[in-house]
């Protein structure tokens, strides 16, 4: 499978502070990839690096096989909707479409016009007077109509109300289905990603804690409840993601490919949210716990 994004030991430093450090991640093409992690995990930095808005301090990154250097040819292949979906407040909706048409050789004017029409946006309306949802839709339209191979969205729905959020994600899904593009979408809300993404990456402190297709992740993770047991007496092929103990009882979330037969444990399904929270909670230092990836 070709990689949409491949980063190796990627780092970005602002002054003395590392916003992203030693990040190694592979994002396959042809998916809607959800990038999830706590604030400060480096999601925005990673996505800006991928879009060519930043240059890395260390390490390498390739996007769609090319380096995001800010050259026009590479820029044309990547659509980027930045955090808070910025648009020019003083420019009208029509002005934005004109901007896109003039600055992108591959601009799909029909797509842009249709989308704006379908959204019910008045082309003469100033972008500064649009609602948050409409503004996000306008930014998405600009990102889509340049016909990129990869669309990167950084927390596009963070500031939207639930209804606008659903509409935005629906519009995104329709466009993905129609134009067969790869998408990387970051969020700290798992519920948003659950509906849209078929691939999930959990990024905590610049490290990938879990990555894989959503189905596989759900199939290989289990919640176990049983009598209290010390961790070193668990089967060797279990990857314990999180463990909670009371005096008598242990509750574990484990990853294993093998079925669980031990009758001492009662096994239940985990939701995507449980899974993500378990990885985000994980206190273990990175060097003790190998980076986990679902093998396919």
């Amino acid at each position: 499978m070709s990689a949409a994004l491949h980063a190796r030991d990627l780092g970005k430093r602002y002054g003395r502070r590392w916003a992203l450090r030693d990040c190694t991640v592979d994002i396959p093409a042809g998916h809607v990839v959800g990038l999830v992690g706590p604030n400060g995990a480096g999601k925005t930095t990673l996505l800006k690096l991928a879009a060519g808005q930043l240059t890395p301090t260390s390490g390498t990154i390739t996007v769609l096989g090319g380096r995001p250097t800010g050259e026009p040819a590479q820029l044309a292949r990547i659509g980027f909707v930045a955090q808070d979906t910025p648009v020019y407040a003083g420019l009208s909706v029509a002005d934005h479409l004109r901007l896109g048409a003039r600055l992108n050789p591959g601009w799909d004017a029909a797509l842009a016009r249709d989308r704006v029409e379908r959204l019910g946006l008045d082309p003469r309306h100033r972008a500064g007077k649009l609602s948050g949802g409409q503004r996000a839709q306008l930014a998405l339209t600009l990102g889509l109509a340049k016909r990129p191979e990869l669309l990167i969205l950084d927390e596009p729905v963070a500031a939207l109300d639930p209804l606008a959020r659903r509409e935005f994600l629906q519009g995104l899904m329709e466009a993905v289905a129609e134009h067969e593009l790869s998408v990387v979408l970051s969020s700290h809300l798992v519920s948003d990603l659950e509906r849209t993404c078929d691939y999930l990456i959990v990024l905590v402190g610049s490290r990938v804690r879990a990555a894989g297709e959503v189905e596989d992740l759900l199939a290989t993770h289990h919640r176990l409840t049983g009598p209290r047991r010390s961790p070193d007496r668990l089967p060797g092929d279990w990857q314990v993601v999180s463990a909670r103990h009371t005096d008598r009882q242990s509750t574990l979330i484990v990853r294993t490919d093998a079925p669980i037969h031990d009758p001492a444990w009662s096994v239940s399904q985990v939701t995507l949210e449980d899974l993500v929270l378990a990885y985000m909670d994980e206190p273990a230092p990175a060097h003790l716990r190998p980076v986990l990836e679902v093998k396919r």
Binding site: P72, L75, P86, A89, G100, L103, N104
Partner: peptide
Amino acid sequence: EAGTHLLVWNQSITR
């Protein structure tokens, strides 16, 4: 300040 540099610098034109 408005963040629009991220919009315009992602069009197919070098900054």
